[in-house]
Design a protein around this nucleic acid. Structure first.
Lengths: 214, 214, 214, 214
DNA sequence: ACATTCGGGACAACCCGTTATT
DNA sequence: AATAACGGGTTGTCCCGAATGT
């Protein structure tokens, strides 16, 4: 009865995602979760050993979804800077729209509230961006003196901060606008002759293709 | 008996700050707090109506400490860009070193976990920075086309993100280095002819004076 | 407000004694106990940190009540053999009649069911009886070749077994009869010329005095 | 598939015996048992309707093993007193060494913790011993005035007590020594001219024969 | 005014023995 | 005989108030 089991597991996960992102992990009670999921406590505890295990599953699911996206975008884009911009747009959109992702982000942000060991956040993104910016550097696209790794760290920090504030103040409704603002300040420091209008237009084209391709 | 009362209040506040910043607000129990404070529950509840009230007091204390700092720094600095840089350095240092501040930041970051209404974060800083960058704009210090408000938002976002990641990964030990990296990327987009070395040196001088002045 | 507290504590202890001796420690729920005691869980947990702590208190109370009894009886009896017999009668009566004692005995018997460390049973009684039988030996009352310590161990074992079986089969209603049977078999092996009728009559006289003396 | 089924049943029984005698019936969870047995819950519940059913099976197995032993020993011994002594030695050894027996004893001792009706303990042994001591009486081996039934009750009580204390204090390691001590006190009250050394030597001879005979 | 002791219940997470379903 | 699901029940904790000193 694999399919019923898989359905139950998914229901729990989705319900937990909603509740976690609404009231936060510590205030979410298993009772709320199973009620929202429409399953019994026994069923939930058959699939997840504990509340923490649900959180871990959620965060790991979220982590697992990025590598394929990175591959899809970099393949279509060709240019590393376009890839980076497109990634930030797409990730921001998912942060805003996908409740599983929102929950994963909330859990990662409050990771000290979860006793279980969650995967370390940020470092994966730093690696990806360091790689892409390194390529850009090799291709002579970066401003002289820019260290790809330092730029990657700054970019991840900026993205996270902007996204967090957008969430705190407006439920991420304005996250894309804030992201554009961030890029407009960032770009001159990153690429000598980068033109934001061209870059963002290219990034959107890539995203359109990626979305259609699916 | 005024002095004993004030001492008790302070002990509770400091103990709560430690516990909140260690395990987070929801997992911090009043029992832990009063034990750490060395007072009885009754005493704590005489000064604070609830656990939430402690959190509110902590956050408000934290908020209240910034305006004087802003005044002190802007008065000494004269130049608005130097003021901004000096502010980020000083605030980052307090985020790292002052347990009361750390607790306030943690509570603000997890503000949806506290049912009571905490003061809205970020907007105060956005106002301050918009003001300072507006001055810089008037004085012709900014790059052409930079909107002071948008730049202020990006700056607050970048600062928060960088600081949060530094906390998550290294307990804020490296926050100053990360902040410098952020500025190095930011500055070209903000000020056409800004030189980071000069700017940061000036900012440190201002901070030295401010610290001595106290 | 010492007196209310002491009352509450006592109510919990007595209720727990009833429930423990009825359904056994593991099957007794705190809910049952506090309901029977007519107090709330908060009150119970103020006095006892856990269910185990109640069990420990019960057993320790039981242990603490024997030394005074030993003193009272030996002082009145003079003769060590009479003391031993009187002790067994009195203890058997309390095992049968006093619910606090019954609970303590039940907990000691099932002590491996309680994770907390309960005082070691039996050894206290072995010491007391070894002492008394040693005196009897010195006074030439014992049969030649009897080792006081071995006899004490056998006596404690016999007493415990007889009492346990009486409890298991008839709720200890027949414990005194069974005890007399035990003594009638035991006495010839212990004291060459002991006469059970004289000895038991003397023991009862001592007990009457002790009871009146209170 | 008869043999696999029988194996599964046996594994469950043995695992349950271990767990019951370690932590007691109420604290033993089916999960622990099936894990220790290396079978699934479904398999265990195929063989036993409930946890109680396992306990009942264990106790009944234990009860069923004594009648053959009684027959074997009385046949070899001839003399009823030798039979009684040999029985106590052999039973004590099995109490100490056989985990199935240990579990049965533990369950019988804590029988009020099992809701199902377990076979009444002690009375079987009392009947056997009453019978044997009755024979001894008829043969003039008992001390004048000894009631076989009362003596049987006292003996069962003494045996149980000594064995229980040995278990509680030393895991039954010293049970044979304690049993000898008990007999040395008991014998004079039971048999006028009984000599313990001869009796126990005869009992051991009988046991050797019984063991070889198997 | 300030502090303490004691009590009140709601509730949380999780486990448990058991039954369906396959 | 294995996987999956079932809910009820357990202990313990938590935040807080009420009664009581000092």
């Amino acid at each position: 009865m694999q399919v019923r089991a898989e359905m139950t597991r998914g229901r729990v996960l989705r319900a937990a995602a909603h509740i976690f992102s609404e009231v936060g992990y510590p205030s979410a009670s298993m009772k709320d979760i199973v009620t929202a999921a429409g399953v019994t406590k026994g069923a939930a505890y058959f699939h997840f050993a504990s509340k923490e295990a649900i959180a871990v599953a959620l965060v790991e699911d979220q982590f697992a979804q990025w590598p394929p996206l990175v591959v899809a975008i970099t393949q279509r884009a060709g240019d590393p800077l376009i890839s980076v911009v497109a990634l930030t747009f797409e990730v921001a959109a998912r942060f805003r729209d996908d409740v599983l992702v929102r929950a994963g982000v909330a859990l990662s942000t409050d990771r000290h509230l979860v006793r279980a060991t969650l995967p370390t956040p940020f470092v994966g993104w730093m690696r990806v961006l360091t790689e892409l910016l390194g390529q850009a550097c090799d291709e002579g696209l970066l401003r002289a003196g820019v260290d790809p790794q330092a730029a990657a760290r700054a970019l991840v920090g900026g993205f996270f901060g902007v996204q967090h504030i957008s969430e705190a103040l407006h439920g991420r409704a304005d996250v894309q606008d804030r992201l554009v603002e961030l890029w407009q300040i960032f770009l001159p420091g990153l690429a000598e002759h980068g033109d934001w209008n061209l870059l963002s237009a290219a990034a959107w084209r890539v995203l359109d293709e990626v979305h259609d391709g699916r």
